[in-house]
Amino acid sequence: MRFWKYSTPQNFYPAAKKIAAVFFVLALCFGIPGLYIGFFVAPTDHQQGEAYRIIFIHVPAAWMSMFIYVVMAFWAAVGLILNTRLSSMLAQALAPTGALMTFLALWTGAFWGRPTWGTWWVWDARLTSELVLLFLYVGFIALRASIEDPRRADKASAILAIVGVVNVPIIYFSVKWWNTLHQGASVSLTKAPSMASDMLLGMLLMALSFWMYSIAVSMLRVRKIIRDRERNSGWLNN
């Protein structure tokens, strides 16, 4: 089986470099037209003026933050069940990028919220869930960082990721319910600007670009993790 050949760190290490290069190119192929459409084709929104142009990074970052968590939990679970080291390394490599996407979603959300609703932060259901997601990423990374033995860290963080992925929908719906109860503090976020098709196209291209970027950068990080972990195994120096 050709595919399984790549499931060992030793064989994956050179492959990851090629995958990273391909996906960086793809990220640019989607990102450059995405930004062009976002800034030079998409018209001014009649309600939000030019402020809405933050959408082209805000929504992709928010999508990726959630998607990466699920993918991370998937690879962590595969690593736990099948005892494959590379799967756990993939999970480990995805976590910082996921946390970064969550941070960017929150940051750009604040910069969008300030001009449109007049405040940097509201305890809206989506913003609050995104904040909790950031905590979950930080917990995953912190647990890994504090366990010396990498194999034990793989397994422990896998359990945490699985527990987290079960909890994410529960947290989201609880927060949503809590938010509808306290109407006073909430601002309706669901009123996205009536999307012109150019806006939608730009947003989708940027989402693809973020996706490709996440793959590429986590491949680079897998290489770094392999270098760190296999330092003493010899094959790296050849």
């Binding site: 003026g49 030019e50 402020a51 142009r53 933050i54 990074i57 910069f111 969008w112």
Partner: peptide, 12 residues
């Protein structure tokens, strides 16, 4: 950016 430069460029 139609007066929203700080916010748009602050994000990007």
């Amino acid at each position: 950016m139609g007066g929203y430069g700080l916010y748009v460029w602050g994000s990007y």
